[in-house]
């Protein structure tokens, strides 16, 4: 920038001393990250290869190589858990990914601004509810005394045990997830839609394009990068199938279709105190998850032009 010839930069030490106050401010942040974020990562790498004994602690417990992993992979129920995790994640993507896109386009095109405002206000609310509350609402709707069963028996049908029946578990999980997030999910698309140059729409109108042509040739291309980006991102997190929600919704009657990696780790680790085995599963999940998210980012960069970083 300077036009008066090269200026000698002060040495690093001098520059750093000028900012000593800022480094001081950053110390608590560093301490937090080391203790609560980095140390657990380190522990995960250690504990997964040890046989944790309560009496000898983490450091005194013996190394066992890959024993924890071979033990887990020999358990038939683990494959069931793995399958449930992937199936539930894919169901969430298959049924939950597109509704917010459609809703965003409809909201964006609505001419009645009061309908848009009112519906947006209501549709965003469930996003801010905890999963406990969502479970409460699902209970109100689908329990044996709930609204849906009252309607079914009211028209002469027979009561369905929605909350305990394995065949209803996944529809309820996926459905209530969509119910919670459909409104919130539109926001990012609405932001992308407002970025489209209005004059393109004007020109299309002059050319006599109808609403469907408009959507196909202007709206969809306009949000395509965001769609591709979010889609690859969601593929990157298929091993995280929503632990809080499932922990609330599932029961021994529905383990078979609902037990996922995170709930398995929760039960094996914290209820059965199998720390090493649960940590090994956690490490497996972390490593696969990291590979997935890195590939997803690579794909997003390649096909959408935007990655996460």
């Amino acid at each position: 920038m300077s036009i008066s010839g090269p200026v000698r930069r002060p040495s690093l030490v001098i520059r750093m001393r000028r900012y000593w106050f800022l480094y001081l401010l950053f110390v608590p942040v560093i301490v937090y990250y080391l203790v609560f974020r980095y140390y657990p990562i380190f522990l995960q790498g250690i504990l997964a290869f040890k046989q944790y004994k309560l009496s000898s602690g983490i450091w005194g417990s013996p190394w066992v190589g890959f024993d924890n992993f071979t033990y887990v992979f020999a358990r038939p129920d683990f494959y069931n858990v793995l399958e449930n995790t992937i199936v539930i994640s894919l169901l969430r993507i298959a049924f939950g990914f597109f509704p917010p896109i459609v809703l965003a386009i409809l909201l964006f095109d609505l001419r009645s601004s009061w309908l848009r405002r009112v519906s947006q206000t209501i549709l965003y609310i469930p996003h801010f509810f905890s999963w406990v509350i969502i479970y409460g609402i699902v209970f109100a709707m689908f329990s044996n005394t709930g609204m849906v069963n009252q309607l079914i028996t009211g028209i002469g049908g027979s009561e369905q045990n929605f909350l305990m029946a394995p065949e209803w578990f996944r529809p309820l999980i996926v459905g209530s997830g969509i119910w919670k997030e459909i409104g919130w999910g539109t926001i990012i698309y609405l932001a992308a839609l407002t970025g489209i140059d209005p004059s393109i729409y004007e020109a299309a109108k002059v050319d006599g394009a109808g609403p469907l042509q408009r959507i196909r040739h202007i709206t969809l291309p306009g949000i395509r990068p965001v769609v591709v980006f979010l889609f690859t991102l969601s593929l990157g997190s298929v091993l995280n199938a929503g632990v809080e929600q499932i922990l609330l919704f599932y029961s021994p009657a529905t383990y078979e279709v609902g037990d996922i990696i995170d709930t398995f780790v929760f039960r094996q680790g914290l209820n059965q105190l199998q720390y090493s085995m649960a940590t090994a599963v956690g490490l497996f999940q972390s490593v696969i998850g990291l590979i997935l998210i890195l590939s997803a980012n690579w794909l997003a960069k390649r096909y959408a032009g935007t990655g996460i970083w």
């Binding site: 140390y39 657990p40 995960q44």
Partner: peptide, 10 residues
């Protein structure tokens, strides 16, 4: 991240 169990142990 370190996952559930290591964080719990910390």
């Amino acid at each position: 991240g370190g996952g559930l169990i290591p964080t719990y142990l910390v």
